[in-house]
Design a protein around this nucleic acid. Sequence first.
DNA 1: CAAGTTGTCAAGTGATCAATTGAATAGGCC
DNA 2: GGCCTATTCAATTGATCACTTGACAACTTG
Lengths: 221, 221
Amino acid sequence: MADRAVKTALFDAFARAAKALASGRRLELLDVLANGERTVEVLAGEVGLSVANTSQHLQVLRQAGLVTSRRQGTSIHYRLAGPEVLELWQLLRTLAAGRLAEVERLAADYLGARDQLEPVTREELARRLQDRDDVFVLDVRPAAEHAAGHLPGAVSIPVDELRRRLAELPRDREIVAYCRGPYCAFAHEAVELLRQEGFSARRLEDGLPEWQAAGLAVTRT
Amino acid sequence: MADRAVKTALFDAFARAAKALASGRRLELLDVLANGERTVEVLAGEVGLSVANTSQHLQVLRQAGLVTSRRQGTSIHYRLAGPEVLELWQLLRTLAAGRLAEVERLAADYLGARDQLEPVTREELARRLQDRDDVFVLDVRPAAEHAAGHLPGAVSIPVDELRRRLAELPRDREIVAYCRGPYCAFAHEAVELLRQEGFSARRLEDGLPEWQAAGLAVTRT
DNA sequence: CAAGTTGTCAAGTGATCAATTGAATAGGCC
DNA sequence: GGCCTATTCAATTGATCACTTGACAACTTG
């Protein structure tokens, strides 16, 4: 019954791909990479790991076929291997969010009870942009990510510069802030701050990767 | 920076869901469960594990929210928690099949080089059934699974009874055999046997779960 | 070509996981 | 109410994983 052994090996191979996703740190890396390619060093900074450790995680992801890399100058840039990878990550977190009460609780802790007000859906924002509705779209991600691609017409003010650049924002229009995805805290923080300061602000329900994956327009500077 | 700790915990929670998929044995269990609910004992038999071990795997899956269970009489029936679980499993194996050469090689070993001839796509078969084309649809899964749900008009002959029931098959029509999914060996085996015996036979590219997930009609006896 | 970055490898440690075994529940059925 | 059976729990063992540290490799750029 060598068949059993081969079947075992086949399903173990599928499991190896899943194993690459079975680490919170690697999922954080994927979540960042969904916003565009990054060097090892930058990634290490984003998720708070040592460079060596980050490199090892990236190699696990590469062996699973989830990311690819290219060298540019002195550094190596990693990126998602394809759109299906983002799709898999989205599906995984949707499923986890829907079925694990734990996730809901942790998400509330992390993102704050800031979420009282309904976020703006992708569809709603796309429609309002289409209709030339005068919504002010605010990209609160780091400037480099904005440069690599952003929503049409979005203005870049990284969240940590927001407090001292409030003057650049309109008080007579609704502001919609977005960042890297539904589990990125930047937009939540930004909306909280803006509300305190008397602005009319809501956040986009998810981030740039989902916008792009939905086939909506993305502008590159 | 307690934020970091909470973020870590949040992504670890997502990772726990992925971890449930990170075992070949658990994926085999999901693959069987995609065809309908099963008792622990039956599942143990299907994947060749001890009952105790199977039970433990099932509990990992349940804690991840991927399966649910219900008691009926003396035994406990497990089933997939929802259609997204099948979707996740499908996406995972598609991605692995596309990106890992290893999978391709193992699949060829397991399913045989039997795969030379083009399988019938779901769409093609659905269209031919619609058009009342005289295709003979053969369900080679165990009889119990056929009873729980099958393609419209499909005839049930479990693969291990096929050789002695060849008389029940037509020689003037194309036979399309299907089983549990693309990585189930039954249909491959069946087609190989039927060809040897001079029948015109092909296999459906995937199985009942995918057919059902695509929203196509399923008959219950 | 030499110096300096950036990224990777290798070895070690503590933690977690899969499977086995044997015992314990928990419900159904007489 | 008490046996029976299907399932689960608990304890153990060997394997695998995450992270650290320090050394090495690959490549750019002066």
